[in-house]
Design a protein around this nucleic acid. Structure first.
Lengths: 224, 224
DNA sequence: ACGGATCTTGACGCGGTCTTGACGCCGCTA
DNA sequence: TAGCGGCGTCAAGACCGCGTCAAGATCCGT
């Protein structure tokens, strides 16, 4: 299911969007200000973000900057400002689209579909195998010795990030950002705990990992 | 250089777009109708397409359908129609964005930049090779004789700086600053220790280095 | 409201990494 | 030729990061 994060301070608009999006089968989170937006973006991992520029606590382009750099999901800006300078700034800051209020709901939904469609084709080659286990990115499943392995949401998310960049080193900072959000960049002990759990569940010999490898001082690497 | 295909039958608009795009360093092809558009799209491999919906020979959505399916480059639709049904149709047909005429040139250019940026995750394989070993900057990996070489964070950091400026001399001061920080600009003995370790791990004959070369009194140089 | 699963947090020991100092060699210069 | 500065080498101790474990906090569905 596609998850949408709505960042908007006017309750009426939030309500209208929530109803329309829910009716089309989207899952909806809502944030009334920039702080909550950054927080929810990290915790809920939306597939697309609808962002109002007129927030009470911070400037809209600031929010965009705060999201970009660690998030690549599409950002569609909603704004009452028609000034083209405003549009140019938002788009160059990293927004994917800019819709002026008042907007037509059907047009907004169409632009949202277009944005999601563009970002979607990551569902290729969704199966990565090793001698010990098999990861299916699309189905979100891991098989080992012919049986499904049960992973917690966080465990899965870490594994997903590592497998997506198979063979490449993923810095601990990057890993923490993508899984827990930018505020957790220093909590390296989280990684130690969860990598240990993943190894216990996936590696034939957890003490001597062959696929989930630690590069001391730098990060972790998934080796197919 | 980014190549733009402009599909538009009004010569004035074509001319305005061509001038503005050329001035920004884009390469411009122009097609006056749908047939020419499909032809040029195939022959010239544009990076982005600006498509007017009001073409003389075929309907705009037909052109989109004709392009999609074998082309994945961003399509930005230009149209005089403000009707939202029209926008929805174009976007669902595969267009990436929809701009209504008359449009502001700076806004159009911003949307074009956004479209190109999205489609551009072209990660160049940052791999540098020598006769003795291979350095993969992206994966943070070093291979030698078919086996991975284990480097410590500091070792890797030094090698990275040297390889990034392959063939060029890197002053010891610069090297110390980039790896240890400005406060360590005088600790040249660090370099001696670590360069020796790197040579021991990478050079066929560490006593007579062929790739990690010392320029006495000045700095170090990586020779591919 | 309850119970189980999941996430957070802290402490500890160990191994590897970094830092630091000493020594000898070489090339340059006086 | 003697002195000097820069470089390579080595080894030892300090230090840091990792794996591990377990207890508390929190979330979730029943």
């Amino acid at each position: 299911m596609t998850r949408v994060l709505v960042v908007e301070d006017e309750p009426q608009i939030v309500r209208a969007l929530r109803i329309n999006l829910r009716a089309r089968g989207y899952e909806v989170d809502a944030a009334p200000d920039g702080r909550a937006a950054l927080d929810l973006a990290a915790r809920r991992h939306p597939d697309v973000i609808l962002l109002d520029l007129g927030l009470p606590d911070m400037d809209g382009t600031e929010v965009i900057r705060g999201l970009r750099g660690w998030l690549t999901v599409p950002i569609i800006v909603l704004s009452a400002r028609h000034a083209s300078a405003e549009k140019v700034r938002a788009l160059d800051e990293g927004a994917d689209d800019y819709v002026t209020k008042p907007f037509g709901m059907d047009e907004l939904l169409a632009r949202l579909r277009a944005a999601v469609r563009r970002a979607a084709p990551a569902e290729e080659a969704a199966v990565v195998s090793t001698e010990a286990f098999t990861v299916d990115l699309a189905a979100k499943k891991v098989r080992r010795d012919g049986a499904d392995v049960r992973l917690t949401p966080t465990e899965w998310h870490i594994l997903e990030v590592l497998v997506r960049d198979a063979g490449r080193l993923v810095g601990q900072r990057q890993l923490l950002r993508e899984v827990w959000g930018p505020a957790y960049e220093k909590e390296t002990n989280y990684l130690r705990v969860y990598l240990a759990q993943l190894r216990r569940k996936l590696e034939p010999d957890p003490a001597r990992p062959r696929h989930l490898i630690t590069e001391p001082g730098m990060g972790y690497r998934f080796e197919p």
